[in-house]
C-alpha cells in the first residue's frame, strides 16, 4: 500500500512526466491556451493513460515475454495504445455526447502523445506489476493534467498581461514552462539521499 502511495506521489510531483521527464510536450504547449480545453485534455488523457498502461502491461506479460519477442515491444505498445484510444472514443461518443463534444478532438491526439508510450515502456523498465502499472499510469496522467491545468491558468493570465513585444506568444509560453519546470524540480527534495 505504501509503495503504491509512493508511486503516486512520485509520478505526480517528483518525476512529473511533463516538467521533469519532458514527455508529452506537444499537448502541453498545444492545448493549454484555455483552462477549459486543458481540463478536457487532462480528463481524456487520464482515462486513456490508465487504461493503456494496464493493457500494455498485459500485452507485455502474457504475449511478448512468453513468446520471447520483447524486441517488438514498441510496435506492440503503439498498436495497443491506438486501439485503446479508438475504443475510448467510440464508447464516449455513444455514452456521453456532452463529454464527446468536450473531448472529441483531443482523443485522437492522445495516440501520438509520447507520454503514453513513455509510461508503457517505463513500466517495463521499472518491472512494475499489474497494480503498480495501473497506479503508475494513473499518477502520470494526474501529474500531466495538473501541470496542464496550472499552465493553462498561467497562460490565460499572461494573455492579458503587458508582455514585451519580442516575448509575445510562444516565447513567453516557453519561458513560463521553463520556470514551472524549475519549480517542479524542487520536489525532488522530497526524496532523501
Amino acid at each position: 500500500m505504501q509503495e503504491l502511495a509512493l508511486i503516486l506521489v512520485s509520478t505526480i510531483l517528483v518525476n512529473n512526466f511533463v516538467l521533469v521527464k519532458f514527455l508529452g510536450l506537444c499537448p502541453f504547449m498545444g492545448v493549454s491556451r484555455k483552462l477549459e480545453t486543458a481540463t478536457g485534455m487532462g480528463l481524456a488523457t487520464t482515462f486513456v493513460l490508465t487504461l493503456s498502461s494496464v493493457c500494455s502491461y498485459l500485452v507485455d506479460t502474457y504475449i511478448l515475454i512468453p513468446l520471447g519477442i520483447e524486441y517488438l515491444r514498441t510496435i506492440a505498445f503503439i498498436l495497443t495504445i491506438a486501439v485503446v484510444v479508438q475504443f475510448t472514443e467510440m464508447v464516449v461518443h455513444k455514452t456521453s455526447p456532452v463529454l464527446y463534444q468536450v473531448l472529441g478532438i483531443f482523443l485522437p491526439l492522445i495516440t501520438t502523445n509520447c507520454a503514453v508510450l513513455g509510461v508503457a515502456l517505463l513500466n517495463v523498465q521499472e518491472k512494475n506489476g499489474f497494480l503498480q502499472s495501473a497506479v503508475y499510469g494513473f499518477g502520470a496522467a494526474v501529474g500531466f493534467s495538473l501541470v496542464l491545468a496550472l499552465f493553462a491558468a498561467i497562460r490565460e493570465r499572461v494573455a492579458v498581461a503587458d508582455v514585451p513585444v519580442a516575448f509575445r506568444g510562444p516565447a513567453i509560453a516557453l519561458v513560463t514552462a521553463g520556470l514551472m519546470s524549475l519549480a517542479f524540480m524542487g520536489f525532488s527534495g522530497l526524496i532523501k539521499g
Binding site: I63, L67, A76, T80, V83, F87, M90, V91
Partner: peptide, 27 residues
Amino acid sequence: LTAILALGILAGLFGLLLGYSAIRFRV
C-alpha cells in the same frame, strides 16, 4: 515466424474488438 504470427493475431484481435464496438456503440 512466432513474432509475425503473434503480432498478426494481436492486430487481428484488436481489429475484431474495434469492429464489434463500432457496431455495438454506433451513434
